[in-house]
Design a binder for these strands. Structure first.
Length: 388
DNA sequence: GCCTGCCCCGATGCATAA
DNA sequence: TTATGCATCGGGGCAGGC
């Protein structure tokens, strides 16, 4: 808790390293690997909820709490807050912040936009730094595997180099190819940033693309202890894929395809009767193509199967770059992978429309988001970023 | 001064082992 | 069922570049 600020800091700093430190409860002798666990223990057993985790050990807790309080200074309230004015307020919620940066960043809460897509999984983030952190924490190993393929363990699938922008220098260093582009669009719009946890997103997302991009070793990691893909979901999905009729060519050929994104996925395996899971766990790493000849862009193109589309109304407005529905259909039915589209090699597939009109490709409706506009595909996070 | 990236911190939700 | 671990979310702060 706060009481452990100083010692904690060092511990947290080490949290990402191999040096595990522990949080010891002096009251009951329990030991925890994480600060969170320790704090929850305090709350549960030592009345920390009242603001007194372990009073005997940490008398300065309340003081720290006060100093960290988000409440405005209340002269009579006894909360001693540094006299600093929150000059910048949010237009939508009256909340105030110290800097404009904070206001902009806060806007994501209202827009629900998650423009920062993890190239390794379907996770999306509203903030660049969160994505960066996610990459470092959750995909660090994969990034390590991007170095010249070691014979053993099996190499990871390297991301196809997209023409998308990098999310950050850091991210680029870790993931030189960063196909962020184009999907940000759809992501954007989770119903609302508020109350939409990762798992909720996952429930809307078909969980697949991540494993498709994972090495075998990494897949196991996703299946275990990785909240982004509940194991049950992943298992069922894999079963689904394996039991499903091979390529949805019929879907491709027919306009009844339920999901353009799915079509896009089919495009990945276009021409063959390969399954939708080219990189499924069953795929030996020897079969994993090198990044240089593997197009993974399409894998990302289908991500938000049933996600509520990006809503320009919820966003900051401005141009939205995307596929017109028709173009989406045609491109998806084309034998060429959508990566060409994503890489902008398919002139005419992109269009600007402002805002996306209401021709909603009615896939399975996402409950509770009927008010949201349709999927306006392919909005580069850059575009969105510029809108801010 | 502003913007951006990064980090820290607390809160919270989900998954899982006991 | 509960306790715990892990991940994300959101706000604050700092440093560096422009």
């Amino acid at each position: 808790m706060f009481h452990q600020q100083n010692p904690l800091k060092g511990q947290l700093d080490n949290s990402l390293s191999t040096n595990k430190e522990f949080f010891f409860c002096h009251s009951c002798g329990k030991q925890y690997n994480t600060q969170i666990g320790y704090r929850r223990h305090l709350v549960a057993f030592h009345g920390a909820s009242a603001g007194k985790p372990c009073p005997e050990d940490f008398p300065d807790l309340l003081e720290n709490v006060n100093s960290l309080s988000d409440m405005p200074p209340t002269p009579e309230g006894g909360i001693t807050v540094p006299v600093r004015e929150r000059k910048y307020s949010c237009e939508r919620c009256e909340r105030r912040f110290y800097t404009r940066k904070d206001v902009r960043r806060h806007a994501v809460v209202h827009t629900g936009r998650r423009d920062f897509l993890c190239p390794r999984c379907t996770q999306r983030f509203g903030r660049r730094d969160h994505l960066t952190r996610h990459l470092k924490k959750s995909h660090a190993q994969e990034s390590g595997l991007m170095t010249p393929c070691p014979p053993d363990p099996p190499p990871a699938v390297k991301e196809e180099s997209g023409d998308g922008g990098a999310v950050s220098k850091d991210s680029m260093e870790v993931f030189p190819s960063y196909p962020l582009v184009s999907h940000a669009h759809m992501q954007g719009s989770l119903p609302s940033g508020m109350g939409v946890g990762p798992s909720q997103v996952q429930q809307q997302l078909q969980p697949p693309s991540a494993p498709q991009q994972q090495s075998v070793s990494n897949i196991s990691r996703y299946q275990h202890g990785f909240t982004s893909y509940p194991r049950s979901d992943m298992d069922s999905f894999l079963l689904d894929l394996q039991s499903a009729p091979p390529p949805q060519l019929n879907a491709v050929n027919s306009s009844t395809s339920t999901s353009p994104q799915r079509d896009a996925l089919v495009g990945v395996t276009a021409g063959g009767d390969t399954h939708l899971m080219p990189c499924s766990p069953s795929l030996s790493t020897a079969e994993l193509p090198c990044s240089s000849n593997m197009e993974l862009g399409p894998l990302l193109g289908f991500l938000p199967f049933s996600l509520p589309p990006y809503s320009p109304h919820m966003g900051m407005g401005g141009l939205v770059m995307g596929y017109p529905p028709a173009a989406t259909t045609s491109s998806s039915s084309s034998s060429s992978s959508t990566s060409t589209v994503l890489s902008g090699q398919a002139p005419g597939t992109f269009s600007f429309f402002q805002p996306p009109q209401a021709h909603v490709p009615q896939g399975p409706a996402v409950h509770g988001h009927s008010q949201l506009p349709q999927p306006s595909s392919c909005l580069s996070h850059y575009y969105q970023a510029f809108q801010q």
